[in-house]
Computed example of a mutant assay.
Amino acid sequence: MITTPLTTELVRGVAELEQTDRGLLPHRLPAWARAQCVDPQLALAESQPAGARIALRTTATRIELDAVATKRSYLGAPPRPDGVHELVVDGEVHARATLPPGDMVTLDLRTGAAGHERGEPRTLVFAGLPPGVKDVELWLPHDETTELVALRSDAPVTPLPRTRRTWLHHGSSISQGSHASSPLSTWPAVAARAAGVDLVNLGLGGSALLDPFTARTLRDTPADLVSVKLGINLVNHDLVRLRGFTSAVHGFLDTLREGHPTTPLVVVSPILCPIHEDVPGPTAFDPAGLATGELRFRATGDPAEVAAGRLTLTVVRAELARIVAERAVDDPALSYLDGRLLYGEDDAARLPLPDHLHPDTETHRLIGERFAAMALSPAARPALSATRG
């Protein structure tokens, strides 16, 4: 077997690979950005390699990956499913596999206490690949921190040539893929595959908060199309009032435009989330659900305080539409997409959000297919323009 060093030419969709004592840890935010925020939620989310994949061209019929998976356990909640690795050969899913436990993190949702146990690397084996030259992508789990240790194959591998447009996307846990069953079933991956584009997914669970370091990361990342899905986490955290939200959105877009002055840019508002349409945050775990072993969320804010500037999704959508319409006068490559066109009231009646906040796999597929048609297809620009306001 041939061992091939892992580099960012092979590992696509990441900002950098951090050298550790065991191997390489993929990061979706660069080190300088991570240094500007000590939030453990952000550290967890950005180290989970949503959208990342090992992309290569080879005649190999057997590929092996040594890696360390960090498993999470929440006390008082159902066991979390293992992160899934999906192997794609010439565009078709060839195999799916999960790593046995490596590192283990245990979290108590009631107290916030956390424990960590260090584990050992394990090996994934993908055998029986078709003969001949082929394009292979091994998609890493979107929701499980995975330290890469070694890549082996029974024939040489080379990086997959970069021939497709690059789509750079930023959003919340929904964009990262929360509750999707595999990396290819997250809505950004569904959309990217449907549109034939290369995905860079900067969806950060709980951390789409208009942080300046995120805007600078987007600014510095090459892309042919950029989309930012904003709003739900600002409401979840009850982080800002309307006055601060407006200026923060302008500042975020200003920074992004420094690196992408004419790149098509789509601002996407939140999908329908009934608990927060007219009720502000913060969002909290539902204690009644925890009592029965279910993980659900509830809105805890007071609707009467919306008049004083508290954010709801209704407020967020109206302000985003207004901001984009105002800026688009001088920025014809800027468009607005109402998230309810991706998942709205009719969809919620048929496919309710299981935990009141995140979509399931079927809903991810629906959102991804709609986004591909509305924002990534050649005919998307007129459709996007029509959704402004």
Rank of each mutant, 00 (worst) to 15 (best):
C37S: 14
V38R: 15
L42G: 03
A43D: 14
A43S: 09
A45T: 06
E46Q: 15
S47W: 04
P49Y: 04
P49A: 07
G51I: 04
A52S: 14
A52R: 09
R53C: 14
R53F: 07
R53T: 00
I54R: 15
R57Y: 07
T58P: 05
T58E: 11
T59R: 15
T59I: 04
T61D: 10
R62E: 14
R62L: 10
I63M: 15
I63P: 11
E64H: 00
E64C: 05
D66L: 07
A67P: 02
V68W: 00
A69E: 01
T70C: 00
R72V: 11
S73T: 14
S73L: 13
Y74S: 11
G76P: 06
A77K: 04
P78Y: 08
P78L: 06
P79Y: 12
P79A: 10
P79V: 08
R80S: 12
H85E: 03
E86P: 01
V88C: 09
V89T: 09
V89G: 01
G91R: 08
G91P: 05
E92D: 04
H94K: 06
H94D: 04
A95M: 02
A95P: 01
R96S: 14
R96P: 02
A97N: 05
T98M: 08
T98H: 03
T98A: 11
P100R: 06
P100T: 00
G102D: 00
G102E: 03
T106Y: 11
L107C: 10
L107A: 06
L107G: 01
D108C: 09
L109C: 08
G112D: 04
G115W: 12
H116Q: 14
E117M: 13
E117R: 15
R118Q: 12
R118K: 13
G119P: 04
P121C: 06
P121E: 05
P121T: 00
R122K: 15
R122I: 01
T123S: 08
F126L: 10
F126D: 09
F126R: 09
A127C: 01
L129I: 10
V133L: 15
K134M: 06
K134F: 08
D135H: 15
V136L: 08
L138D: 07
L138F: 07
L138A: 08
W139T: 00
W139Q: 04
L140W: 02
D143H: 15
D143V: 09
E144H: 00
T145Q: 15
T145L: 14
T146W: 07
L148M: 02
A150M: 03
A150V: 04
A150L: 02
D154W: 00
D154T: 08
A155F: 07
P156T: 08
V157E: 03
V157I: 12
T158I: 09
T158W: 10
T158K: 11
L160T: 08
L160M: 12
L160Y: 05
R164V: 06
R164Y: 00
T166H: 09
W167L: 02
L168H: 05
H169I: 14
H169R: 07
H169V: 15
H170K: 00
